[in-house]
Write a protein that binds this DNA or RNA. Structure first.
Length: 648
RNA sequence: GCUGCUGUAGCUCAGAGGUAGAGCACUCCCUUGGUAAGGGAGAGGUCGAGAGUUCAAUUCUCUCCAGCAGCACCA
């Protein structure tokens, strides 16, 4: 028998017979490890305890204490157990695929009737039953023909299709959870009882296309979440509850920020409170852009299709544009226009007015560009995905040599702005040339190298995403993590060599000849609508003072204090603070509760004591204690807080 | 766009083949109360829109619209 040498995490190496399994090794170490073991890592690969090891390798045996492996296995086995439960209850349901996802798993089924919430409860109960049976998990490698025969005989056409898609040289692995079989790469747990029966939950059912293709059958997908312990599940459910509390659609109503209605789906009616945030943010961005050497422009909403044809958008996005037909009295034919879905072609039109010299570059052209896109109805989602929105858009026209310095400047601007807006950290994704692309390899080499050198001059901390670039150039995407750990992709920075060509943008170089500028498409917030949605959810409505729509309410405790209340409001307003009086005939408890729920950052309570001393009792949002201060001190302090971060 | 679900007062929701209810919010009255709901009275609805079945439809059926959860899409 051939011997192999296995190296353990502590550095010790031991010889074993080739073909030994990690399960057997665990059993050789101790009885309890044999029971507790869930899987192994063999030469970096996640390894089933039953799989033979045939060559020298490093090995680590995992138990439930190893989060990464434990969660993957629990969720993966839960997916199989769920599919088995479904087929035990409804034997004619066809199974497809069931992968592990972020907090759990899903499994797609083909079944005539839809699954109901009651069905989910029944499936969950059946799953617990299966877990309690502690059925062993076993595995075998099958011949392709045998597997195809088997699934044909069992009426599982989706599995047959999956086998056909697996490359011919890859072995087909079968897994059994008890009597129930599934085609699966593995690894899996030792037996169904290793899945914690009290730490999973079936969440919801939704439609999903077979193989993610909208031209194919719609299957029913059941989502589940699973953890190592009941506590893990509880924490996850709490997080979901917290996210629901922060939902910007709910807070938007409660704080009277905006509404949407049937007559304008996907478009926002901004109320005074919401518009205060919106314009505050826009003014801030305008100042920052100005500081970074941008010029601001504005371009038309309704633009003839000819321009969209020239830019290439008509071909690709016609279905997603709002088309406006204009039938002029004496015109031979109707003119067909589109509401602009983006600003870049219009910016090139401004660039193209008059001859440009290399001395004019880089030209940083910004627009708070109001765009309209006819998004598919199912895509709409509050402020996060709308049909009418305004981008903080800009295009930098520059020479190829300037790409690097422009990128560096942009990165600096972006991180400074995110920081001002309360997001300390973000992730960068660097996407390189896709297979189908425009532009020569030479230009791509240059663009990618410039972009990469530029990020590296700021940070080495970015993720490479090969092949995911735009067809016209490499790009950087910027992802923020919010207060409850959700990720949002916001900013983007794209190098474009194609549009200047299509729309014939040129500049005269030092050599006196015409050259093509490069266009850098860039946005920091993306759209104001979406960014405000994210901002509201990140702060759970408790926005930083300077951007809060209602900053201060001055509330009287007794009506004899009303005059002083109005004095205080006037003093705050004069100092640039958004202050309002609340002299309603209500108790102070009532007013404090109402304005706290309204997320007003500062509530100033005024009773006779304050009137006599010319003081103020200030209560800050989220604090139980109030503080008595002089009027001057309060005005000074709040005026300072009301100053936007870039003006401090 | 696709699958499933939902649409009743400003908000959150209950209800039923015989024409509609609660709490909060709103209006008025009483109350001047010291940091998260003082008391009383009142007003408020073409039950998402259209068509059909029925003596009778807000309730059942169909179509449409919008929203929600996913999927697909996102220049």
């Amino acid at each position: 028998m051939t011997q192999i040498s296995l190296t353990f995490p502590d550095g010790n190496a031991r010889d074993f017979d080739a073909g030994i399994t990690a399960g057997e090794i665990a059993a050789g170490i101790s009885n309890s490890l044999a029971k507790k073991a869930i899987s192994a890592t063999v030469n970096g690969a996640h390894w089933d305890l039953q799989w033979p090891i045939t060559e020298d390798a490093s090995i680590a045996i995992h138990t439930m204490k190893d989060d990464e492996q434990a969660l993957e296995l629990i969720r993966h086995d839960a997916a199989h157990i769920m599919a088995r439960a479904v087929q035990e209850i409804w034997p004619d349901v066809k199974v497809t695929i069931g992968p592990v996802i972020q907090h759990g798993w899903y499994y797609d089924f083909d079944r005539e009737e839809p699954f109901t919430p009651e069905d989910l409860a029944e499936i969950e109960a059946k799953m617990k039953e299966i877990i309690n049976r502690r059925d062993p998990v076993t595995t075998e490698i099958w011949e392709r023909d045998r597997a195809v025969e088997y699934y044909k005989a069992n009426g599982e056409p989706y599995k047959v299709e999956l086998i056909d898609a697996i490359p011919g040289d890859e072995p087909l692995r079968m897994y059994w959870h008890g009597h129930w079989q599934d085609l699966c790469r593995g690894p899996h747990l030792q037996h169904t009882g290793q899945v914690p029966g009290d730490a999973f939950k079936l969440m919801n059912v939704a439609g999903a296309y077979w193989r993610g293709d909208s031209d194919r059958a719609m299957l029913q997908r059941i989502y589940g979440v699973a953890f190592q312990s009941k506590d893990g599940l509880r924490k996850h459910l709490n997080m979901l509850e917290e996210a629901a509390k922060r939902d910007h659609r709910k807070l938007g109503r409660e704080m009277d920020l905006f509404h949407m209605q049937e007559e304008a789906p996907g478009q926002v009616f901004w109320h005074p409170n919401g518009w205060t945030i919106y314009t505050g943010l826009q003014n801030y961005m305008r100042r920052r852009q100005h500081d970074y050497g941008y010029v601001e422009v504005n371009t038309p909403q309704v633009v003839d299709r000819k321009l969209w044809e020239a830019s290439g958008h008509w071909d690709k996005y016609q279905e997603n544009m709002f088309i406006v037909e204009v039938d002029e009295e004496h015109a031979r034919e109707k003119s067909i226009n589109a509401l602009k879905p983006m600003n870049c072609p219009c910016h090139v039109q401004i660039y193209n007015q008059g001859l440009k010299s290399y001395r004019d570059l880089p030209l940083r052209m910004a627009e708070f560009g109001a765009c309209n896109r006819y998004e598919p109805s199912g895509a709409l989602h509050g402020l996060m995905r709308v049909r009418g929105f305004t981008q903080d858009d800009a295009h930098i026209f520059c020479t190829e040599d300037q790409i690097e310095s422009e990128t560096a400047q942009f990165l600096q601007m972006l991180s400074s702005i995110y920081k001002d807006l309360g997001f300390e950290s973000f992730e960068i994704k660097f996407s390189t040339r896709p297979e189908v692309r425009a532009g020569s390899d030479e230009v791509w080499d240059k663009a990618e190298a410039a972009l990469e050198a530029a990020i590296r001059s700021v940070t080495d901390d970015f993720e490479l995403d090969p092949g995911e670039g735009a067809f016209y150039g490499p790009k950087l995407d910027f992802k923020l993590t919010d207060a409850i750990g959700r990720e949002w992709q916001l900013g983007t920075f794209q190098a474009d060599f194609v549009l200047p060509e299509r729309l014939d943008a040129t500049y005269i170089g030092e050599d006196g000849a015409k050259h093509r500028p490069v266009m850098l498409h860039r946005a920091i917030l993306g759209s104001f609508e979406r960014f405000l949605g994210i901002l509201i959810e990140n702060f759970a409505g408790k926005l930083p003072f300077w951007i809060a729509p209602r900053q201060v309410v001055v509330a009287s405790i007794v009506s004899d204090a009303d005059d002083y209340v109005h004095d205080v409001v006037a003093a705050l307003k004069a100092a640039g603070v958004r202050a309002e009086a609340d002299t309603r005939n209500e108790k102070i408890n009532y007013k404090v509760r109402e304005h706290s729920l309204g997320k007003v950052p500062a509530i100033l309570a005024i009773g006779m004591k304050e009137v006599e001393d010319r003081t103020i009792s200030m209560r800050r949002l989220g604090q139980k204690q109030s503080q008595v201060l002089s009027l001057d001190e309060v005005v000074r302090q709040l005026a300072d807080e009301a100053t936007p971060p870039d003006l401090k």
